[in-house]
Amino acid sequence: MSEFFQATVLLGLLTAGVRLATPFLFAGLGEMLSQRSGVLNLGVEGIMLIGAFVSFFVAFESGNLYLGLLAAILAGAFMGLLTAFVSVTMKAVQGISGIGIHILGLGLSGLFFRLTMGSISTMRGFPRLAIPILKDIPVLGRVLFNQNWMVYAALLLVPISWAVIYKTTFGLKVRSVGENPHAADSLGISVTRVRYICVVIGSIMASIAGAFLTIGQHEAAFVNNIAAGRGFIAVALVYFAKWNPLGVLAGAFLFSMIDAFQLRIQIIDIGIPYEIPVMLPYIVTIVVLALSTRGRVLGPTALTKPFVRGVHT
């Protein structure tokens, strides 16, 4: 047991936790923006899969990782437009349309993987990039500042999202569209446009989260269904976060740290069935949320409600 608390193991745990949290940060922050504007995008998982495949494929064929990332951004934007068209313009029931987008993404990524690559290939992804000076901070340096740049980008997105939502005119528009679209509309804000922008940005971030699973790994590979449910967890974490970027950070870290922890607790073999540790991140997330919620926390009032001028729901 004592060896478990060795410094290297603990450092490894924290480092792994940050790495595991990265896709949740990208996808979760994007989903939060989308939900802030009143659109539930349950298709994150499918969009992640498309981002994972497209980025890997383009990077593999071109030999340029940044080109791969760009392709993931474009693919994410396309899926975002599709999602927004279905959810905003066609006013579809958002829970269901998201499941449709998920299934479609699963299918398209698998189909094009087979048609274009046909077998599992590997390549070098983004390397670790130690940040000078910062990397020498004890513990924190090793944990936070010896990762690849996508991890830094994800972490930076937390304050950026916070600033955008709470400190910019755009953020104000987004919140008003999500809270009271009719009032926003009467003030001359285009509800449709704001929602389109938020959904597209959210989808791009989901796609980047997918790219992190392939080209964001030191050794990169794409396999079918590589997201393995992470997209749904990302959506769930937005509820955990109560639509606050700092909450997304807390939720992503909580879930991932416990995941990294359970991977290590299994190793020391404490004599319980391994399924219990595997369940741990899921159960702890529920319990923490249950314990931390007092009273009725209101999300964006108009969440999942399509906007029709003159019809109040």
Binding site: L213, Q217, A221, V223, N224, N225, I226, A228, R230, L263, Q266, I267, D269, Y274, E275, V278
Partner: peptide, 11 residues
Amino acid sequence: ESYTGSFGDNI
């Protein structure tokens, strides 16, 4: 010895 709890979760 440890287990992921699934067959196809590469990450």
